[in-house]
Simulated scan of single mutants.
Amino acid sequence: MERMSGDDQSFAELMDVCSSHFAKCPRMEEEDRSSDRRPARKGQRKPSRSSASDLGEDGSLISMLAKLTLRQEDQLNQIHLDKSFIFFVQAGKGNILPLMLKTSKDWHGQREAGQLNTSLRQHMFRSVFEEPAFRASKLPFGSNDHELIWVLQNKQVLTATNSWNYLQWDSKEKTLKPAARDPLPSEEAAALIQKIHSLAAQADLIHRFSALKPMPQDSTVTDSVVVPWRLDISLRGQAAQDLYAALQQLTGSGLTQLIFVRIRPSTLQRSPLAQAIAARLTK
């Protein structure tokens, strides 16, 4: 598999996501908005403000819009169940965020030079899946006395038979623990990564792959910082079905811990903003 140098998220947005790893760019000065306060020209009507009656004296229209927004949120979440995964990318030493930023920068440079015809989301996704395959290929399987193998086995990420445990989050102890699922053999895991990488080469299969929130603006980043990324794939065609099935098989696997990433399917849980809107409606 060739290592390639990633939603078509702009490079500027990605810079914001990974700002804690790289120097921040100076902010552009705000434009002078004094023109907004100039008097209207003769014959030009001033924009009218909505009266209270337009929105309803009791804010009933706003309430209806909020309820409609929540209904649409729930409908979108139902669709995401069949096409979306969340990648929890953990910061800290050895994480993959700097590589993702470099991939974005390289993609923009190559596109300007006319050397690429793939989307950023597709390019980024394939690049991410090259990294665990690359790191796993460097592991000395069978050498149980090797330090890294010992660490992986001690953390119950890797079994004594060189299989990757499936892990689940323990909310009480705030840690990952082995799940009640047969481990994924290392050879099968390598073939699975190769399959995902190859399927993602098909056009229009990756609909979105982008960060859901920016990195914190602190100069230091601890291992507790996690940046979620959303992956949306196509719902149509055999290739889309095969990709979804492969990602499901990889979900929760300890293999992705090599790049400090945890994958889970999307859920019906509302976003924090939608939850806040729902809470206001019940008051």
Rank of each mutant, 00 (worst) to 15 (best):
S63C: 14
E147G: 06
R208M: 01
H80C: 03
D218W: 05
R126F: 05
G237T: 11
V128N: 02
E57M: 06
R280T: 12
S84I: 10
C25G: 11
T161Y: 07
E131S: 03
A203I: 07
T256P: 01
H146W: 03
I259Y: 04
G237M: 08
Q275Y: 00
A189E: 10
A12F: 07
L68T: 11
R230D: 08
L81M: 09
R38Y: 03
L76R: 02
H108V: 13
L199D: 04
T222H: 07
Q122N: 05
G114Y: 08
E57Y: 08
S253I: 00
K213H: 04
S104M: 11
L14H: 02
L250G: 02
N154S: 09
V226K: 12
L152V: 01
L148R: 14
L205Y: 14
R33L: 13
V157M: 12
H80W: 07
W164K: 03
D16H: 10
R49Q: 12
T267A: 08
L139Y: 08
A239L: 02
K67A: 14
R280D: 14
S137D: 15
G254S: 06
D106W: 03
V128W: 03
S198D: 13
A278C: 06
L243Y: 02
L167E: 05
A200L: 05
F22E: 04
S104P: 01
G56Q: 11
G252E: 06
S163R: 09
A278T: 07
D8H: 13
L65P: 00
S253K: 00
D7S: 14
R236V: 14
G109K: 01
S34L: 07
A201C: 10
Q241F: 08
V151H: 05
L235H: 14
S137C: 09
D54Q: 13
I196K: 03
K213S: 15
D54C: 07
V221G: 01
S34D: 15
L247R: 13
I196Q: 05
P178F: 07
F141W: 03
S48L: 14
P265M: 06
S34Q: 09
R126H: 06
L70S: 04
P26R: 13
D36P: 00
Q44H: 08
M28H: 09
A279M: 10
C25H: 12
R3P: 07
P140W: 00
E73V: 00
F87K: 09
K172I: 08
Q257F: 10
A179P: 09
K105L: 11
V151D: 07
K67I: 10
L176D: 08
P178Y: 08
K83E: 13
T251M: 00
Q248F: 09
A52E: 06
L99F: 06
K24E: 00
Q72G: 02
V261M: 15
V221K: 01
V128D: 01
M64Q: 15
T220M: 10
G43W: 11
D242I: 00
Q269E: 14
M124H: 02
L184N: 01
S253V: 00
H80Y: 11
E29L: 10
H123E: 09
S271N: 15
D232K: 12
S119M: 12
A274M: 15
D182N: 05
G252C: 04
V221R: 00
D32M: 03
I263Y: 11
I263R: 09
P26Q: 10
I149Y: 02
Q78I: 02
